[in-house]
Design a protein around this nucleic acid. Structure first.
Lengths: 148, 148
DNA sequence: CGGAAATCCGACGAAAACGATCGGGATTGG
DNA sequence: CCAATCCCGATCGTTTTCGTCGGATTTCCG
């Protein structure tokens, strides 16, 4: 189980933009200076814009800016914008999984994990990351198997 | 962020073997009957054996069996055997990450997530899955940023 | 002993995903 | 106008994933 570099780069870029939030739009060039491939990063910022997390200003002296208050931007939303939704198993999203297995009890496991990982990711905001605070300490969602 | 089918198939197979734990060794053929690709599954069972989760009996009337008590086999160990360790970001395992970024504060995020997801996965045993019990409801590990 | 049932294992191959790179178009400040 | 900058679709090499294949080995059973 791993994440692609898209998510890593995206989080990195968002943290950078958050730090420079008061300094006007940051051009791609500047964001990539930490060592990220510039043209690749451009794609990711496009995804983040479409996800409503950054705004852009085109033309000379343009660049990228954080679109919303830092406490509203979660790691979950960053990863979802750049990597798509968390999908541990088709079994968890699609209905007709496990063709011949009458009682697919593994499905409950995937659903439980999906819920809890999402809740973990939603518990971390850019604000938290910047302030180096201990992250959200909600409890695990209690789990009751769905009757289906 | 997704899991490969290896993990899905492996969990499915392990649940099946757990259900048949009292009935002697189950041949590959039988395990695959639910619709899994037989020869592919064979590789996965090899990995599970190397991980110490199943034992095999070779030769005619042979097959696969659960190797340990159900409450000792966690979803974490199944996924680790078949997919390798959870690795959200090289940044989390390797040291020299983020080449030019002096203070890589994203690293703390990956470490935190890795710890908590692992703890989620370790909280579910085959026993729990079979009995359809609410899974482990430990709290999130409290997190204090490492000073590095 | 011989054959059938089964696991074991390495190699191969098609398809998808990943990690970029490229080239050109559109927008805007100076 | 021109330079800086974002926008966007296409392409491309590499790696990973998802299997398949063929053969070797082990063991039961008659």
């Amino acid at each position: 189980m791993k994440l692609s570099t898209r998510g890593q780069y995206a989080l990195h870029a968002m943290v950078f933009l958050a730090q420079k939030a008061q300094e006007g739009p940051q051009p791609l060039r500047t964001i990539a200076e930490a060592g990220l491939p510039e043209q690749y990063l451009e794609q990711l910022l496009g995804a983040l814009r479409r996800g409503g997390l950054v705004t852009t200003i085109r033309g000379a002296a343009g660049g990228y800016q954080i679109a919303r208050p830092l406490e509203e931007i979660t790691v979950a939303s960053i990863l979802e914008s750049t990597e798509g939704p968390l999908n541990l198993s088709e079994c968890a999203t699609d209905q007709a999984c496990c063709p011949k297995s009458s009682a697919c009890i593994t499905r409950d496991v995937w659903l439980y994990l999906t819920d809890n990982i999402n809740s973990l990711l939603q518990g971390i905001t850019l604000q938290d990351v910047l302030h180096n605070k201990p992250y959200g300490v909600k409890e695990h969602q209690s789990y009751e198997p769905r009757l289906s």
